[in-house]
Design a protein around this nucleic acid. Structure first.
Length: 288
DNA sequence: CTTTTAACCTGCCTGC
DNA sequence: TGCAGGCAGGTTAAAA
């Protein structure tokens, strides 16, 4: 479950069901799942053995779990990654990639399941003195819009100086993290902005509106347990969120805009799709 | 230097 | 039924 609300649902599940537990044994069933771990699968499992999982943190779509004073396990769900808390005896999922067995008597294990293998786990040093024990590789990831330390003014200034379009900017994790294809389309629809609008043309009030809508749609989605179109995106207990029923733009091609009734359109865009209302979100005047 | 494209994977759905 | 092609919520190395 890839975007910020879905990852936050997972983080909360880990906080409840995995934090504080000590790993008795870690098993890597598919080496690609730990390809971002520099020292390889054997080092990964060896270093996790005996490690106690601290409370999980999140920035944007990235999760991390501090293990010791200066080490944390980073997790990214990619397009199809899941963390599942399962009964120890439950049969292996078809796409089970990494399994953690604990030294306690709770009777459950922790599994990283990932059909498309774009996600992965890895161990990294943390930024010295960082209160959240941020892993070094995440230092370049921007704070996300629901982080109290997110700087709205700096974000607007960055948009103004970029030579790009608004949806590309929203998906740039070094400018603002946690926004993906669904919530970008939803926030743009709520703000009545076209995805190809040049960022340099945005006024400060427009940027403020956009940020407000990003926060609102993510808050709404979180309250609904996230967005799930199928069993691919689930919480640690395997349950789907139901925000898909509340989407206004994403996935609604040819269905009437909930504001003006005009059919929502889908456009091929950067090897994926953009959904928008052609009336509420008119295309910007072509530049040059 | 910044911006854009193509590639990385598996599985499902549609149309021929 | 089979098969090709398109599509899917992610990042990122390489090219422009």
């Amino acid at each position: 479950m890839p975007e910020l609300p879905e990852v936050e649902v997972v983080r909360r599940g880990l906080a409840k069901w995995a934090a504080g537990r000590t790993v008795a044994r870690a098993t890597v069933l598919h080496p690609r799942a730990v390809r971002r771990h520099p020292a390889g699968p054997d080092d990964f499992t060896h270093r996790l053995t005996g490690a106690t999982l601290a409370a999980p943190h999140r920035r944007g779509k990235y999760l991390w779990i501090p293990l010791a004073q200066d080490t944390a396990m980073v997790a990214h769900l990619g397009m199809s990654g899941q963390f599942l808390i399962r009964p120890e005896g439950a049969p292996a999922e078809k796409h089970l990639r990494v399994r953690f067995v604990f030294d306690d008597t709770e009777g459950t294990d922790l599994r990283f399941v990932d059909q498309r293998t774009f996600g992965g786990l890895s161990l990294h040093e943390t930024v010295p003195g960082d209160p959240e024990q941020l892993p070094q590789p995440l230092a370049h990831i921007a704070r996300d819009p629901i982080d109290p330390a997110f700087d709205d003014d700096a974000f607007h200034a960055a948009l103004r100086r970029k030579k790009t379009t608004i949806k590309r900017a929203l998906l740039d994790q070094s400018l603002i993290s946690g926004v993906g294809n669904i919530y970008a389309d939803e926030a743009l629809w709520r703000t009545k902005l076209h995805y190809d609008r040049p960022t340099a043309s945005l006024t400060r009030p427009r940027t403020a509106e956009l940020l407000t809508h990003i926060r609102e749609v993510m808050g709404d989605a979180l309250a609904a347990g996230g967005t799930s179109f199928d069993s691919m995106y689930v919480n640690v207990n395997g349950e789907s969120g139901y925000f898909d029923r509340s989407l206004d733009a994403y996935g609604r091609e040819d269905e009437p805009c909930r504001r003006c009734g005009t059919p929502i359109r889908r456009r091929a865009w950067m090897n994926r799709s953009s959904y928008f209302c052609p009336r509420c979100q008119p295309a910007p005047r072509p530049s040059s």
